[in-house]
């Protein structure tokens, strides 16, 4: 069993495009979407039967019991997040701004403030012949490494010995990305030839290599900027990173996503992605 994680640093470089095509090419039985802030893989996955849904709870948040509140205003004074407001002769906690620190609970002289469970998102498991786990965070919730870990744990029991598991990762370099890396065997980085794409690529390489995980790099939309494409290839060579190929900007890719169909096997786009897939597996085998 091998787990391949697909990451990019910058958003919108084509992680999900690679993930969904890799799933198609490899006929992967188990896969997951760890981009919990903006999950997209479920939109193109062929499995539509949700087998299990469960709420994800983040940190509890504070709430004021209006009946016991004596309106002293101490809570509002002590809140460092400006989450408590006074309007219509009532003190109220804005649940989007409350960080759940518990300071207001502590300072309230009449114990009118308590913690309530707060649904921060939802975890989903799809199953038919394939198994797919994903999750979505509620609006206003911060980044969540814990939710990423839960998504991965959810699929764990379905994985068999000889599976290739494909995981669509979150963007950025923060806590969810680090959580997505645990337990994986290899990482494919999808780079984009733009000045911002390169600066983000370098940041994600730093993060991935600090965990001693083997990485491979590919370029998406290479024909949009050949100068920067060459710069990325040169950079990977100089630093002895594995380069596994480039895929052009193809209208066919966008059409296949929008129409919910797989790329035609004789299309240029399919062939380019398949080559990246084959090279990636070669490196890691």
């Amino acid at each position: 069993m091998k787990k391949l994680l697909i990451l990019s640093g910058k958003g919108g470089t084509g992680k999900t495009t690679f993930a969904s095509n890799f799933i198609n090419i490899s006929k992967a039985r188990v896969f997951a979407d760890c981009d919990v802030e903006a999950p997209n893989l479920h939109l193109v996955s062929a499995i539509k039967d949700v087998k299990k849904r469960e709420n994800y709870y983040g940190l509890d948040k504070s709430v004021i019991d209006q009946e016991h509140c004596i309106q002293c205003g101490l809570c509002k004074e002590s809140c460092k997040f400006s989450a408590i407001s006074f309007a219509d002769s009532m003190y109220e906690i804005n649940k989007h701004m409350c960080e759940g620190c518990g300071v207001c609970n502590y300072v309230c002289p009449v114990n009118a403030i308590s913690f309530v469970k707060y649904i921060d998102g939802e975890i989903c498991l799809y199953e038919d012949r394939q198994v797919f786990t994903t999750a979505e965070l509620q609006m206003g919730s911060g980044n969540s490494g814990l939710l990423v870990t839960k998504v991965k744990k959810n699929m764990q029991e379905y994985i068999k010995e000889d599976d290739l598991v494909i995981i669509d990762g979150p963007p950025g370099i923060g806590c969810p990305v680090i959580a997505s890396m645990s337990g994986v065997d290899m990482i494919l980085l999808v780079a984009e030839p733009s000045v911002s794409g390169i600066s983000d690529l370098k940041r994600i390489i730093k993060t991935a290599t600090s965990f001693h995980l083997p990485i491979a790099i590919c370029i998406n939309k290479h024909n949009l900027n050949s100068r920067l494409t060459n710069e990325i290839i040169k950079y990977t060579k100089e630093n002895k990173y594995n380069f596994v190929g480039k895929v052009g900007y193809h209208k066919a890719i966008i059409d296949s996503i929008n129409n919910g169909v797989f790329l035609e096997e004789n299309s240029k786009a399919y062939k380019e992605i398949k080559e990246v897939y084959i090279n990636t597996l070669k490196i890691f085998s």
Partner: peptide, 9 residues
């Protein structure tokens, strides 16, 4: 920033 988290708010 991207997304719909507290930093966007």
């Amino acid at each position: 920033p991207p997304g719909n988290g507290c930093s966007v708010m």
